[in-house]
Nucleic acid binder design. Structure first.
Lengths: 189, 189
DNA sequence: ACAAACCTGTGATGTTTGTTAAAAAAAAGT
DNA sequence: ACTTTTTTTTAACAAACATCACAGGTTTGT
């Protein structure tokens, strides 16, 4: 059960066996059925979640009732609302399972305790947040481009994701309507 | 010279006096005239920069020759290209002084050494990157909204920045043309 | 296997925003 | 102070994209 997450950590830092055990002991295993929510608007987010099986989408619903996908989460991804965790305020996001899904979750408070005991763990989180930050910067720049270019970029970067999520969710992630995405696809062929 | 940066660190973590000194000793002071570049496309970014006076803009030039502003940096902000730093590859960004500016810079290699010696420093960077990440998520969601809403949001969040940068740079940050922004402003009055 | 729910494709139409160009205004440098 | 350079404003036009509506497919749960 812990192979995926330990391998992911090992890609960035080295933990002693005892540290690995301590970390794994803090993890909780959670299973979700398709359509089930890991987090709902209004909840306070207390956990960071690492996906070991299946897939999720994180989205917010805006004033006009539109769903805007912030990110997807498949195997090997962390997903949660850091803003809600940092500020202890209700989240604006929903995180919904797109398929039957399994995650390992760790409580924020527990994680912060572990950071004090295991500096390499804090380093790991610094590094993955940095990677996520860089990826988001890239996304911001891509939002300036035409919908065709955004979709092309999405295909090259997240080909495997495109296979697993519905077109409407891809459109929402790209910030275009499903109609526009549908037309884009037919135009190209 | 170090008050600003030490105060900023103290807002998030506590450093022992010896740690503070060690950190400050690793900093270099750098002055820039208006229009001077701190980083140019093609350079490899080796430093993280903390602004203590003045202001900068970080932008990339896309295939069509358009300048897209990634972020501004005024007093109390860190600015650099983490992607270039992480991968040791040439940056796609330019960082240009908008006014006469002073920064404190720290070499990436030196910083990583310090992380090993001063865990609280690594914590500080984890936290500020997390904050930057959360702010970027918010920006991604705002990119879905109309240009009027984006500008309104910008005004409420960055009123002080709006005072100090030209309208065309605000427009570029918002992902709209300067003409559109100009029209927005006149419409409102 | 079948009904219900959900997702995708397509056309007609409207709105927003970009484009081009030129004039007015403001700011910077000497 | 004054010239040069840069920035902002405005207008007419074009393009990209959203919206609305509905038909045809596909998936899902029972």
């Amino acid at each position: 059960m812990y192979e995926l997450i330990l391998a992911h950590i090992a890609r960035h830092v080295t933990l002693a066996p005892a540290e690995r055990e301590k970390f794994c002991a803090a993890l909780q295993h959670k299973k979700l059925r398709r359509r089930q929510y890991l987090l709902q608007e209004g909840d306070i987010c207390r956990y960071d979640h690492f996906v070991i099986k299946g897939g999720l989408r994180q989205y917010e619903v805006d004033d006009e009732g539109r769903e805007n996908v912030m990110q997807f989460g498949f195997e090997d991804w962390w997903i949660s609302d850091w803003y809600s965790m940092l500020t202890n305020t209700p989240t604006a996001y929903n995180i919904e399972a797109l398929e039957d899904t399994e995650v390992l979750q760790i409580e924020r408070v527990k994680l912060e305790q572990l950071f004090l005991e295991i500096p390499a763990l804090e380093r790991y989180f610094r590094i993955i947040i940095l990677h996520a930050f860089v990826a988001l910067q890239r996304r911001v720049l891509f939002m300036q481009k035409s919908s065709a270019e955004r979709y092309a970029e999405f295909l090259t970067r997240y080909a495997h994701v495109e296979q697993r999520v519905s077109q409407q969710h891809v459109a929402s992630y790209l910030g275009i309507t499903r109609e526009t995405l549908s037309r884009l696809k037919s135009r190209k062929l």
